[in-house]
Amino acid sequence: MAEKQKRVAFGALGIFIFLCIWYAATTLTSLGKVMPDPITVLAGFFTAFVEPIGTHSMIMHILVSLRRMLIPYFFGGVLGVLVGILMGWYKLADAILMPYIQMIRPIPPIAWIPLSIVWFGFDEGSKYFLIFLACFFTIALTTYNGVHSVDETLVRAARMLGAKDNQLFTSIVLPTTVPYIFSGLQVALGSAWATIVAAEMIRSSEGVGWLIISGQEVGNMTQIMVGIMAIALTGLLITSIMRGVESKLCAWTVRGK
């Protein structure tokens, strides 16, 4: 399609203009004293794949951060979906658990960092805990909203036709809820990524967040920008993968497109 080609062309132009402004700002003005130009940053980024920064190469930093994020993301997701469905379906579970969720959710996951360090030490444990918190509440609540959005008349119609609870669940509740779950997973992914970066910046010895903070400590702006680039690209990659999975699995929803 011509429209698509136009889009790509303008997009490339946009990025090119952005890089030009960046380049001009750093080479022509005094900003260059503190900020490296884009070529240096790009070169630094690719060099980092072969020459390690600290004890790891770039790919290892990214993988370490991803592992820290994905393991608790998985558990937070599974548990969040289960609790969300439980609360959505059973009023009693709703009444018991909802007050806790409502009380704990307004606390930003990042604010748990000091407590998690005391409870789980400086190692992986505290990071897993944080990411779990960052994912669990979001996913539980969106799932809960999904179950609540199920059309009452559909449920009544199915009941009248003699559907059992488990049939109701698989044929009505689940299809309605899945798009909600995905939107929750999507939001949680973004917030998990932000949280892991923050957690690594506060205490770690490797990972993309560490790249930035160790750059700050020695005043190496190039390393900071390389770290930011790694964060942006990895973030973009995982959200695109998530969106791809979503559009495959929920082809019937508008959100999936």
């Binding site: 946009g14 923050a198 910046m201 967040g209 750059g215 920008m225 964060i231 959200t239």
Partner: peptide, 29 residues
């Protein structure tokens, strides 16, 4: 539309950077 097509990709890239990550840049600056 034209501004949209130009700025969108740059913006999509910037928005994936968590706010915290800018702390290091700003502190250094």
């Amino acid at each position: 539309d034209k501004i949209d097509m130009c700025v969108r990709p740059v913006f999509d890239l910037v928005r994936t950077i968590p706010g915290v990550a800018w702390t290091s840049v700003m502190v250094t600056l």
